[in-house]
Design a protein around this nucleic acid. Sequence first.
DNA 1: GGCTTTGTTTTATA
DNA 2: GTATAAAACAAAGC
Length: 283
Amino acid sequence: MPELPEVETTTNGLRKEVLGLKITDVWTDLNTKDKRKNDTVANPTFFKIFKKEVIGVKIISAERRAKNILINLSNGKTILVHMKMTGYLFYGSNSNIKYAHVIFNLSNKKFLVFSDARKFGKITLLDTKRAFDSKHLKHLGPEPLTKGFTLAEFIKRLKLKPHSKIKTVLMDQAIIAGIGNIYSDEILWASDIHPERKVGQIKEKEFLKIYKNMQKILTKGIHFGGDSMSDYLNLYGLPGKFQLHHNVYQRKGEKCRKKNCKGIIERKIINGRSVHFCSVHQI
DNA sequence: GGCTTTGTTTTATA
DNA sequence: GTATAAAACAAAGC
């Protein structure tokens, strides 16, 4: 699923390929009466406004915030894309992509396609100036890979939820932005911390371990072009390679890869999410 | 038919 | 009254 490294990979691709191009047309087959999607292109009324705003406008920059992609336009508007579970952006000369639900025609005759098998993803339009203050981004915690995000800050954020399980807190977007199920499993496995440990019961040394592994593993995810265990593909429609380097995620019943550990990877539902871990060395 | 996934929102529990 | 957990929900493939 698209988490920070996948969204970062796609955003980097956009920076390389579409800056300076104009949007010449936009199409969608999404059409829902779900009120929660009233401010997305899946709402026909919103789509009319969206279309009017983006056609003829130049793409000037692209950035990532948590798991969101922001495509900034020359008219002061920003297209916000959240890929949720099965979404991805594709760029190329062919728009005939499986599960294509939104297609942008670009001034170089190429296409930017939003593919999304489950249609959980959302695309909306914001004022660039107010994007970070919008309801979509306002609540988000700090970015884990920025230089200013120190160990002290990390501990302070986690300790906002002292009675919650570490697994749940790592994935809480309001505490730290961008970490989802795959990377939180991998981070805790590498840190020898049981996913059900309460934040308040974790020692300073252990926080340091989690902090270091968080930076290391997210960076590794980006290095391998993201994780394509599920549906994620990069801007060119190619899979990432991080799934080849999982130590725990989706390895239920297999041998623990920790040095000298004889454990078997277990899978358990914790706070409604499936969690993979080794109960021998993760304590 | 049940399970799976994210993130938001609502409802329940301690 | 507060904090946390659980449940419901959108959707569709397997």
